Simulated assay, not measured.
Amino acid sequence: MLTGKQKRFLRKHAHHLTPVFQIGKNGLNDNMIEQIDETLEKRELIKVSVLQNNFESKEDLAEQIANGTGAYIVQIIGNVIILYRESREYKQIDLP
């Protein structure tokens, strides 16, 4: 579980990032969760954009991704989900 201080730290680092994945009208599938998992291993911190034509709740989508990848939800702001998971091989971010 992330503390408030750690979430603020991660939000600061995620500010300049652009969304790596987009979830559209087809929603999430196992392949997309697997790709997000691989990307989290390389980058640790990513943004996922939820398009307007997706009618699922952003909170539900974020929970599905977090459960499928073992990531933490840092923030859901607008149509963007920010996710963090510490990398085993490519550790770049040291949390406070």
Rank of each mutant, 00 (worst) to 15 (best):
I36Y: 09
R85L: 11
R8L: 13
R85C: 05
L10C: 11
A62P: 04
L61H: 06
E86V: 04
M32D: 11
R43M: 03
I65E: 00
E34P: 11
I46M: 01
N79M: 13
E56L: 14
T18R: 10
E38V: 05
S49C: 12
L40W: 03
I65F: 06
S87N: 10
R8Q: 15
G4R: 09
I93D: 04
L28S: 08
V74Q: 05
R43W: 07
N54W: 14
G27F: 07
I65D: 00
Q92F: 05
I65M: 10
E56P: 00
T69I: 10
Y72R: 08
E59D: 08
L40M: 01
F55K: 14
I23V: 10
F9A: 01
F9I: 03
F9P: 00
E86L: 04
A66Y: 04
A66W: 07
L17N: 04
E63G: 04
T18E: 13
I81D: 00
S57H: 02
V74K: 03
M1I: 14
I77E: 13
S49I: 06
L45T: 02
N26C: 08
E38S: 14
N53M: 06
I77V: 12
I23G: 01
F55E: 08
L45W: 02
S49N: 13
Q22G: 14
K5L: 05
L28H: 15
T39R: 01
V20W: 03
Q6T: 11
K58P: 00
T18G: 13
P96V: 03
H13R: 07
I46V: 04
T18H: 10
V20G: 01
I65N: 00
S49D: 05
E59Q: 14
I76H: 08
Y84R: 01
L83A: 01
H13A: 11
S49L: 04
Q52L: 13
M1V: 15
L51T: 09
T39C: 06
E86N: 06
I82S: 13
I76D: 02
R11G: 02
R85Q: 08
H15P: 11
G68T: 04
N26F: 15
R85W: 04
E59W: 06
Q92K: 15
D60P: 12
E59A: 13
E38P: 09
N31K: 03
F21M: 02
E44G: 04
A71K: 02
I93P: 06
D94T: 12
L17M: 07
D94M: 10
K7R: 13
V20P: 00
I33M: 12
N54K: 09
E86P: 15
K5I: 02
E41Q: 07
N79G: 15
I73K: 10
R43P: 02
I23L: 05
E38H: 12
M32T: 13
E56K: 15
Q92N: 06
T69D: 07
L10Q: 04
I77A: 11
D30N: 11
K7T: 15
E89D: 14
P19R: 00
I33V: 15
K47S: 09
G4V: 10
K42S: 07
L95Q: 00
